[in-house]
Each structure stands twice: as structure tokens, then as C-alpha cells.
Design a binder for these strands. Structure first.
Length: 887
RNA sequence: GGGCGCGUAGCCCAGUUGGUUAGAGCACCUCCCUUACAAGGAGGGGGUCGUAGGUUCGAGUCCUACCGCGCCCACCA
């Protein structure tokens, strides 16, 4: 054994321990037909990522599961990797170039991509290093990147297969356009944010001079793209206008007044300007009524040549200018405040524009069907369950997925065009293939160009549970067969649609099986005011700083203890003191035990059975029984994803049972064999149970205590021992704890310093209880620092200088000499009697209710009447003590 | 417009299928540097569980409505 130092130096230990685990290959899993696999794929962090508290929580949960399942003997694999994060990464590198005064266009596609790869080589493993600092037991040998060669092959294969099935198509539709990133986005990538804006009421003059129609809009600048005004066909106010024409101000374009059911007569004026190229609803009307589609925007958000005098202006600048011009011409009826939700780019937060453009889409309805079934029939379970409804709601209303992006960093579409055919017909000369065709299959031209777009990052992420194993290459089959489907997916709520839902669809489509059986959705990490942590708000707590200051174990156990199933976590820096203090407690307890251990008496295996269990004193049997009870409860909690509950059980056991009571009692018999054995075994066992939560500290102590036992990481979880969990014995110890508590309370009531010895007399008329106390009186004597404890045959204070209380049928009389404040004592007893009486009254009420006796289960009735009996006895004894006191 | 979560001690939160007098941690008060730990030990005060009804022998827990706070989804310009 090597001596445990006074202070735990986590700074040094953590990296050293982690390296040794990694070197010994503990994180690596392989196909093991004899063992049950347990597999988690990490939600791949962005390659640009740096560890934030969301990761810390997410990865701690996964690490707990992984370490626990490894300990219970399963072939456990945690598959790590990173995501190329198309737009995010491209933005990072573009910003870097920007500082050098360069745009990506200055470099050209190829040179720019070289720069991104270079950046990836230099910075892409930052997040991996940080995961290691957290302690994550990932199988790093398998680390994947979504743009690895093999992975890219999977992406391409999926595109081609879906295209062959008719599930991928190209078309001209309104998509979400980010004018800053200058790319299309999926609906999920353009989340709506509530914003307070205005509703502008604009008069559109009728061609025949008979007046005007007023329309309401939140985006007045789009009027330059208007090709109609629509009213509801049943709207009496407007019937007479249908078919007339309007002169669009500024452009003097003649546009028709059309009738469409879509228009809500209640909203605004009941007349809607129709901009088919810049609004999804208007697009629909445009198609229904065969209206022209006029694009008025450049890709960067400036107005284009179709915007007349406003061409070249930024969209928001144009809005202001137009409103001013309308006002001058008397065409602006009014402006009303109006709150509405506006789409924003999830990468740069720019207001997105609905934009008509030709993009590639995945037809989602056919994929969604099986994914709905898999959840409905219970093959995939969400924890907590409520997310199932969110998932199903999205799945059942699924829209087609826009997958093409006008950026450079990503998987380029395996689509090739023949420019010659294209120039004749935009839909002709398109080839989807693994390789660039030699010549155009239509006209035979050898001039072939690849599509410039890349795929949505999530179009690669959704393949993660099987592409990481090498799918679709045949050599991946044996691993896929063993490790797929994976076991649990751990992620945050924000990512259910982006990723979880799509992985389920992809798994069912390409593997013909679910990708995982359980989805654990944890809460969002927020600051203490409830705001999401973000760099721009400046409210982040950096997990690495916490690791530096408190240790990774403290970070982990604090985070886990704070988060009950699926509930958001409100963090502040001081909350990590909880874990730091706990780590310190464990360290010191272990140090104390080691200082007192006689190595010669200890078994080689700290978890060997207790052959002499029945002969052990109460305290030993009690803590052993408690340990194995807690082991079972922790196991049960972990199996049900109740991580905070498991952590709480261990905290309470270790601190408030093992340290507060057993360790104190052990001091009485510290050199005896049974105590040595018990200290050693319960401490070692506790380290095992704590290991998934606090891997570093527990490993460090374990190797110092059990140098021959190997690493804690590969040691089996303590197996349940038959016959050591004993409720009766726990009750006996419970009586001692209660009695000590009361005696200590009496001490404190007399204001005695801990070093003052007291004399205590106990009156207890119940033989069983008396025997328990008599047999274990040395414990009580020690725990309350009594010089003498005796038993009285009558229920009254032995002398006037005594303070008294009654608990669990025992009257306690404590004397440390000196005077007592008689009035105060009586008041105390009276207060207690009053409390008891109130409790008795309530019990009586319950027991006297015939319907209670009739309907409640017999064991409850029995419990209640036994409870009442105890209360009554306690009150009687207190009365007697009180009477004796006043004599 | 739908859907979800939360409201329990001064603060931050647990509370598993309804069942003794509702619990931690932090903070607070008293005592203690007792040879594991002051990042600690012993003791203590503090809550009509958001409000109002209902179901039930019994409600923090189930139902309904309402009041606050937060989140998600949705093509009302």
C-alpha cells in the first residue's frame, strides 16, 4: 500500500490516471461473442467545438453509463468522434481569413478547403482533449470524423440510394435563405424567434381609379415582388374587387386581385399582398393562380435589379426607404405594433429570407412512417417519456428536407451536369453517380461539371450509429452485427429533430433496424437566472475552469446531483463546492482508514465474502447491510436513468452513514479483525460504486489501498451478497442512532462542550429495546461522550440536575452536574407533549373513521394503529417525567 | 393557435406506483480546531407544498379551472 497524502492533488492525478487507462487499452471494445454488448455513440461535437457545460453534462451521463456497464461485465463501447459542422466550421475559417483581409472567393474553392483542413488538423482535436480531461472513457482508437474517407463514402451511398428510390429530388421552392451565410437552410436550421415588429398598412390604388385596397404586411420591401393582391372569396367587403387590377406603386406594375381561401378575412384588412418568390404562402397562391414569380433579392440580402430605384439597397434599408416614400405619397395608412415570430439562422442569427431557389430535397414522409412505428410500439423508448409526444408530433407533420447548401466545406453532392443539355432544358443532363461520368448520357458531351453545393451537415450525422462502424463496406459487417443497434442515446432536447429523429429514420431505412433502444434526453444547462449559457451573453461557466479549480470529479458529481431526470439545470459557480467537499470527504475518510489498517489482516480481494458475518458486532453488520442495500438501489436507479438519485444515495450512504456513524464506531475497535475487514471492504466497495461518477479520485484511492487488485475501471461491480441485507438489524442500529441523537440534543440543551463527560440513565420498559441498548451500550457511551450509562427501573429523573426526553419508548436522563433551568425544561417537555397530542389526535381521527378501516389495506391500518400506540406511550412517559420533575 | 415543463424552507432543488409528524445542499443560529476531514464535527430554527375547487378512508403526489414563470412547435400576411 502506498500512503495516501494529506491533500488530494487532483491537478496532477487526473491526467496521469487518464493516460494510464488509455495506455492499458481499457477504453477499447471489440467483438466479443461471449459478452453482451453495450454501445453508446457520442453526439459528435462540432470539430470547432470547445467544451461547454452542456457537453460536460451530456458526456458525464454517458461516461457514467459506460463505466457502469463495463463494471457489470458488458462489452462496452463508447464510440467517439467529431462532426465537420459545415457552416459553423466554414464561418470560423472565413473569419480567420477575414482578419488577414481575405475572402474565401479570393482563394477559390480548392485553396479554401485546404485552409479548412489545415485548421482542422491544428484545432480539430481540442474538444477531444477536453473530453479526456472530463474523464470520458471513449474508445479513441475508433475516433471518427464525418468527413473521413469511409464516412464520406457512406454519405454518398445514402444519397444515391435515396435518389434511386425517388426519395431525393431537385426542385424550385421557397427555402430559408441566410443572406449572411449565403446558403439555403433546412426548416430546423431557421428557428423562429419572437420579435416585436410592425404591421404596415399600405394603400394599393386600383387601375380603374375607383379607389384603393389596403393591404397589411410586416415586410413592406417585398411589395416590389408583388404579383397579386388576394382576398377571401367569401369576404363580402371585397367580392366586387375580384378580377380588377391594381397599379403596384413605384413600379407601376399591373397586378390582379385574386380570390383564395387561404386569406383570413379577420387578419389585417383581409386583403393580402402576394409575393410568390418571397413567402411560402404566397408561393402556394402563385402556383394556384399561375402568377409570375419575381425575385427581388440578391443572395446577400441586397435588393436586385427588379427592385427599381431600390436596387442595391440592403433589405432593411429598402424597407425604411419604402415606408418613407409611401408616407410621402399618402399610401401609408398606418403602422401598428405587431409581435410575430421571425426565422433566424441558427449559425449566425441573421434574419432569414424566404427565397425561391432550386435545391435538393429528401422526401420525408416515406421515411417517417417506420420511425413513428418504432416508437409507438415501444422498440425505442424516450426518457423521460414526454419527449415521445414531441417526437411523434414532429414526425407526423414532417416536411421535406432541404439538403443542399451553397457552401464549400462538406460532402459535395454526387451530382453531375452536362452544361450543354442544361442550357436547353434546366432539368436535362443531370447524373447522380458515385463517379464523374465520362460523358453526358444524353448528348455524349465530355464536358461534365459536378454540382457546386455540399450536403447539410445533418445529412451525414444521421448516419452516425452505423457509418461510424464502416458501413456500407462489407468488412464492417461483423462489427455492425455485434454493435448495432446501439443501446442508449444521450442528448439534449434541442437536437431531437435535427438528429435523433433522423437517425431513427436512417437506421430503419439503411440497416433495417432501430439505431438505439433508449433515448435519454437531459435538460439544458442554464445560468442561475434561467438563461441559456452563451458566449454572447457572457454568462458561461467554463467547465475547464471548474476542473482546474475543483477537479473533474467534483464537476461531474455536482452536475449529476443537480439534474433530476430531464429537468433543466440552473448553474452557478458555487454549486460545484458540493462536489469538491464530497471529494474531500472521501479522500479524508480513505486516508483515516488507511492510517489504521494493518495490511497483514486484509484479504487480497477487497470484495471477498464475509464468512463470519453472523458473528460480527452490530455496527459491522449494520454498515454491511446498508452497503448492499444501497448497491441495489443505485443499480436500480442507474437502470432507470435516475442519475441524480443514484448520486444522492451514494452521497448519503458514504457521508451520513459510513462516515458519520460507522467510522466513529469503528474507532472503538479499530485494531480488531472484524473492524479492519469491514472498513477495508466497505471503503473499497464504496469506491467501486462511486467510480462511474468520480472516476479519478476513486481510482487514485483504490490503487493506494488495493495495489494488487488492478485498476478500478476493470474491476467488477460489487455482486449482491445473499443474506447480508437485514432490515431488523438496520432497525436495531436505528434505535441506537435515535437514542444518541436525543442524548446529544440534551447535551446541547445544557450547553455542554463536547469534551465534558456526562452521566446518562435510560428507562425502557420494552425488553427487546432494552436488550439492544444494553448489548451495544459501549457504542452509545462513546458516541455521546458519556462516562457512564445505566438503566433505571423507574421512569423518573434520578436527580434534579438532569435533563430529560423520551424517544422511541426510551426515557433519557442526562446529567452533567450543575443546575438546570426548570422552567425551560418544562416548557420544552410541554411543547413536545403538545406536538405528540396533535399527532395522536390526527391518528385517532383517521383510525376512528370506519371507512378507513374498511377501505385502506390492512397493513396500512395496522401501521397506523401501531404508530398511534407508540405516540401514546411516548406521551405517557413524558407526562410521568414531567410530573417527577415538578415534584 | 397547439403542446410541454416549472411554482415545495431565506436561496437552489429532491420527493419513484397516493399511505406515519414533507427531505437534502447552501445560507442562518448555538457549541466545538475531540489525533480523517474547519472544504469539518454536534445540535438547532425555518415550509398551511402557487390559488380555488374536485376525486379518495387518505392528496405535495390524481382530476378541473385559474394565477405567475419558462420553453418548444405552427404558412395568419
Amino acid at each position: 500500500m502506498s500512503e495516501i497524502p494529506t491533500k488530494y492533488d487532483f491537478q496532477d492525478n487526473e491526467s496521469r490516471i487518464y493516460d494510464s487507462w488509455e495506455k492499458k487499452g481499457f477504453f477499447h471494445a471489440k467483438v466479443n461473442p461471449g459478452g453482451k454488448p453495450f454501445v453508446i455513440v457520442i453526439p459528435p461535437p462540432n470539430v470547432t467545438g470547445i467544451l461547454h457545460m452542456g457537453h460536460a453534462l451530456n458526456d458525464t451521463i454517458q461516461d457514467i453509463l459506460v463505466r457502469y456497464h463495463k463494471m457489470i461485465g458488458e462489452e462496452t463501447l463508447w464510440m467517439p468522434g467529431t462532426d465537420h459542422a459545415g457552416i459553423a466550421t466554414q464561418n470560423v475559417v472565413e473569419r480567420k481569413l477575414g482578419r488577414e483581409g481575405l475572402r474565401r472567393q479570393d482563394l477559390g474553392r480548392e485553396k479554401f478547403l485546404e485552409q479548412v483542413w489545415l485548421w482542422k488538423e491544428q484545432h480539430g482535436s481540442t474538444i477531444i482533449r477536453q473530453l479526456k480531461r472530463l474523464g470520458c472513457a471513449c474508445d479513441w482508437e475508433r475516433t471518427r470524423f464525418t468527413m473521413d474517407e469511409g464516412y464520406s463514402e457512406a454519405v454518398q451511398e445514402v444519397f444515391i440510394r435515396l435518389h434511386q428510390k425517388g426519395l431525393i429530388y431537385r426542385g424550385n421552392y421557397i427555402i430559408n435563405w441566410c443572406p449572411r451565410c449565403q446558403t439555403a437552410l433546412s426548416d430546423e436550421e431557421a428557428p423562429h424567434q419572437d420579435s416585436s415588429g410592425f404591421l404596415y398598412y399600405i394603400r394599393y390604388p386600383l387601375e380603374d381609379g375607383s379607389g384603393s385596397l389596403t393591404v397589411a404586411t410586416t415586410r413592406p420591401e417585398t411589395m416590389l415582388g408583388d404579383t397579386a393582391v388576394a382576398v377571401n372569396p367569401r369576404d363580402e367587403r371585397y367580392k366586387k374587387f375580384i378580377g380588377k387590377r391594381i397599379i403596384l406603386p413605384f413600379l407601376d406594375r399591373l397586378i390582379p386581385v385574386i380570390a383564395d381561401d387561404f386569406v383570413d378575412p379577420e387578419f389585417g384588412t383581409g386583403a393580402v399582398k402576394v409575393t410568390p418568390a418571397h413567402d411560402p404562402n404566397d408561393y402556394g397562391m402563385g402556383r394556384r393562380h399561375d402568377l409570375p414569380f419575381i425575385n427581388i433579392l440578391h443572395p446577400d440580402g441586397r435588393m436586385n435589379e427588379n427592385a427599381g430605384d431600390y436596387a442595391g439597397m440592403d433589405r432593411f434599408e429598402a424597407r425604411e426607404a419604402l415606408v418613407e416614400a409611401l408616407r410621402e405619397r399618402g399610401l401609408l395608412e398606418k403602422i401598428v405594433s405587431h409581435d410575430h415570430a421571425v426565422g433566424h439562422c441558427y449559425r449566425c442569427n441573421t434574419v432569414i429570407e424566404p427565397y425561391l431557389s432550386k435545391q435538393w430535397f429528401v422526401r420525408m414522409k416515406p421515411l417517417a412512417g417506420p420511425a413513428v412505428t418504432a416508437v409507438k410500439d415501444g422498440r425505442i423508448k424516450f426518457h423521460p417519456e414526454r419527449w415521445e409526444k414531441v417526437y411523434l408530433n414532429w414526425m407526423e407533420n414532417i416536411q421535406d428536407w432541404c439538403i443542399s447548401r451553397q457552401i464549400w466545406w462538406g460532402h459535395r453532392l454526387p451530382v453531375y451536369y452536362c452544361p450543354r443539355c442544361q442550357s436547353k432544358d434546366g432539368e436535362a443532363g443531370v447524373t447522380v453517380a458515385r463517379q464523374k461520368p465520362e460523358k453526358c448520357p444524353v448528348c455524349g458531351s465530355a464536358e461534365i461539371v459536378q454540382d457546386n453545393d455540399v450536403l447539410d451537415t445533418w445529412f451525414s450525422s444521421w448516419l452516425w450509429p452505423f457509418a461510424t462502424f464502416g458501413w456500407p463496406r462489407p468488412e464492417a459487417d461483423s462489427e455492425l452485427k455485434y454493435f448495432y443497434p446501439t443501446s442508449v442515446l444521450v442528448t439534449a432536447q434541442e437536437i431531437i429533430f435535427f438528429w435523433v429523429a433522423r437517425m431513427i429514420m436512417a437506421g430503419l431505412e439503411f440497416m433495417n433496424d432501430i439505431p438505439f433502444s433508449d433515448v435519454y434526453i437531459h435538460g439544458t444547462v442554464r445560468d442561475k437566472t434561467g438563461k441559456k449559457m452563451s458566449k454572447s451573453l457572457g454568462n458561461v461557466i467554463d467547465p475547464l475552469e471548474i476542473i482546474d479549480d475543483f477537479g473533474a470529479d467534483a464537476l461531474r458529481i455536482s452536475l449529476i446531483s443537480l439534474t433530476s431526470m430531464g429537468q433543466d439545470v440552473y448553474l452557478s459557480r458555487d454549486k460545484f463546492e458540493y462536489g469538491r467537499n464530497f471529494a474531500n470527504k472521501i479522500w479524508n475518510a480513505a486516508r483515516f482508514i488507511q492510517m489504521n489498517l494493518d495490511v497483514d489482516h486484509l484479504p487480497a480481494d477487497p470484495l471477498a465474502g464475509f464468512s463470519d458475518f453472523a458473528e460480527m458486532p452490530l455496527a459491522e453488520r449494520w454498515i454491511i447491510s446498508r452497503f448492499y442495500s444501497v448497491e441495489a438501489e443505485v443499480r436500480r436507479s442507474l437502470e432507470r436513468f435516475r442519475f441524480n438519485e443514484a448520486a444522492g444515495l451514494l452521497y448519503d450512504f458514504f457521508w451520513h452513514q459510513f462516515c458519520d456513524w460507522y467510522l466513529e464506531l469503528a474507532k472503538l475497535s479499530i485494531s480488531e479483525n472484524h473492524t479492519q475487514q469491514t472498513l477495508y471492504r466497505i471503503l473499497s466497495g464504496s469506491l467501486l460504486l462511486l467510480h462511474p461518477f468520480m472516476p479519478f479520485l476513486t481510482e487514485e484511492l483504490w490503487t493506494r489501498l488495493c495495489p494488487s487488485a488492478g485498476s478500478l475501471m476493470t474491476h467488477p461491480w460489487p455482486a449482491a451478497l445473499p443474506g447480508v441485507i437485514d432490515r431488523e438489524l438496520e432497525g436495531e442500529m436505528g434505535l441506537i442512532i435515535t437514542v444518541c441523537g436525543t442524548m446529544r440534543n440534551l447535551r446541547s440543551r445544557k450547553g455542554l462542550s463536547p469534551r465534558v463527560k456526562v452521566k446518562v440513565r435510560i428507562f425502557v420498559d420494552e425488553a427487546g429495546k432494552r436488550r439492544i441498548l444494553e448489548n451495544n451500550i459501549e457504542y452509545v457511551k462513546y458516541l455521546v461522550n458519556a462516562e457512564e450509562i445505566s438503566f433505571s427501573e423507574e421512569n423518573q429523573p434520578p436527580s434534579p440536575s438532569v435533563v430529560s426526553d423520551v424517544i422511541s419508548g426510551c426515557s433519557i436522563f442526562l446529567d452533567a452536574g450543575g443546575e438546570i433551568n426548570k422552567a425551560e425544561e418544562e416548557a420544552k417537555i410541554n411543547k413536545r407533549i403538545a406536538e405528540l397530542e396533535e399527532a395522536i389526535r390526527r391518528k385517532e381521527q383517521l383510525l376512528n373513521n370506519p371507512r378507513f378501516r374498511e377501505k385502506a389495506p390492512p397493513e396500512v391500518v395496522e401501521k397506523e394503529s401501531a404508530g398511534k400506540k407508540e405516540l401514546v406511550e411516548e406521551r405517557e412517559k413524558l407526562e410521568q417525567v414531567k410530573n417527577a420533575l415538578s415534584r
